[in-house]
């Protein structure tokens, strides 16, 4: 179970994306060479986070792209993700583990005393 905190929802969501990529590689080795973006929509905060993480994960799983930094904006149901990173280079980016998917199991977005808290689980 991954637990992430953020001062507000955009900060929380972008931190979740970074946490996901930290499960894959040492992000300090990833250069901010390229920009990618994605848009998703969800009815609830949990749904938004789920679709956002799925989309972010596909950057790696389908396009072998690694994220160093992430920025999220939220407008109603719409969430926009902008990331900076570079394509996977196995000589410089040893991948820690194989992730099959981001799951919806026990996914939570909650108000915490100093902002927001999210929990998510990936299948390895």
């Amino acid at each position: 179970m991954v637990e992430v905190r953020g001062v507000d929802l955009p900060d929380l969501f972008s931190s979740c994306v970074l946490a996901l990529f930290s499960l894959l590689v040492d992000r300090r080795t990833v250069r901010e060479a390229e920009v990618r973006s994605a848009e998703i929509a969800g009815d609830t905060e949990e749904e938004q986070l789920f679709f956002l993480l799925r989309e972010a994960f596909l950057l790696f799983a389908a396009h072998r792209f690694l994220v160093r930094n992430a920025h999220v904006t939220i407008l109603g149901k719409q969430v926009t993700l902008t990331v900076r990173g570079e394509p996977l280079d196995t000589s410089r980016h040893p991948v820690h583990r194989e992730i099959k998917a981001v799951t919806a199991h026990a996914m939570a977005v909650e108000r915490a005393p100093e902002g927001f808290l999210a929990r998510f689980l990936v299948d390895v």
Partner: peptide, 12 residues
């Protein structure tokens, strides 16, 4: 491999 994982994910 990834193909099967994605099929499951898509259809969930």
């Amino acid at each position: 491999r990834g193909l099967g994982y994605q099929v499951c994910d898509d259809y969930l």
